[in-house]
């Protein structure tokens, strides 16, 4: 079964869809958590601490968080490897392009056209984001246990904001095409559902992008400091 899934284009696409949806689910939670920043440093830092203690005392400190991290890592790796392999296939399947230049009947949306590069941007961003706010390697404040201050510090730099805002716009586009595409990859077909899916995809893209952007904008405008 694993073989059938990973060996075929359709199976691999399903793997991408499922891993993408797992990441999407995480992002929704992540975004909601981020908004706690508007309640002030104590609430936000408390929330961050709570994340590490979920399941205690049955589970140990940060156990849950590590489970989530492992699942996410698996999702990211599967998503990227599948995307890379499928893209190579797709490019090899059309080695010669058309000489004609000009308007074509095919109207691909911007979101569709930017899936591959958007994905690359998001992959790089994840690395930056972990270095910035998890390991604090590149964070200007870099004080463990004080995520509020670290976030504010990061969004007080021009490059921190630029990288973050660009990545969140890419995320919106990626979700916009990706959510509906994932549904189709998993075989959701009916026309009524398709319309609903499109609305959901656009809604998710909008809400997530707006929710994530609220934080740097708030820091930049001084609402959060």
């Amino acid at each position: 079964m694993v073989n059938l899934l990973w060996r075929s284009t359709i199976g691999k696409k399903a793997v991408m869809a499922v891993s993408g949806l797992v990441m999407l689910l995480y992002l929704v939670a992540h975004m909601l958590g981020n908004l706690k920043i508007f309640f002030g440093p104590d609430d936000f830092n408390g929330y961050a601490h709570w994340l590490r203690t979920i399941g205690e005392p049955a589970l140990g400190y940060e156990w849950t968080l590590w489970v989530v991290r492992v699942v996410l890592l698996a999702a990211v790796v599967l998503h990227i490897v599948a995307a890379y392999q499928l893209s190579r296939r797709d490019i090899a399947a059309r080695p010669v392009g058309y000489a004609h230049r000009g308007a074509s009947r095919l109207r691909m949306t911007f979101a569709t056209r930017t899936m591959r590069w958007g994905g690359v941007i998001l992959g790089l961003f994840i690395v930056w984001h972990i270095l910035d706010l998890t390991t604090l390697t590149v964070n200007p404040h870099a004080e463990p246990g004080h995520p509020y201050e670290n976030v504010v510090a990061s969004f007080s730099t021009w490059y921190g904001n630029t990288i973050y805002i660009a990545a969140m716009l890419a995320l919106g586009l990626h979700i916009r095409h990706g959510f509906a595409a994932a549904a189709r990859s998993l075989g959701v077909t009916s026309a009524r559902l398709a319309a609903g899916l499109r609305v959901t995809a656009n809604g998710l893209a909008l809400v997530l992008t707006a929710g994530f952007l609220a934080v740097p904008l708030a820091v930049m405008t001084g609402v959060v400091s």
Binding site: S8, I10, I91, A92, L106, M108, A181
Partner: peptide, 24 residues
Amino acid sequence: LDMVTAMDDEGFGGCTQVGACATA
């Protein structure tokens, strides 16, 4: 299963949900 395997083996690409096929 067999048709999709054959399709992949022939060197056709995969679907990225562009929709150009149905338009054409």
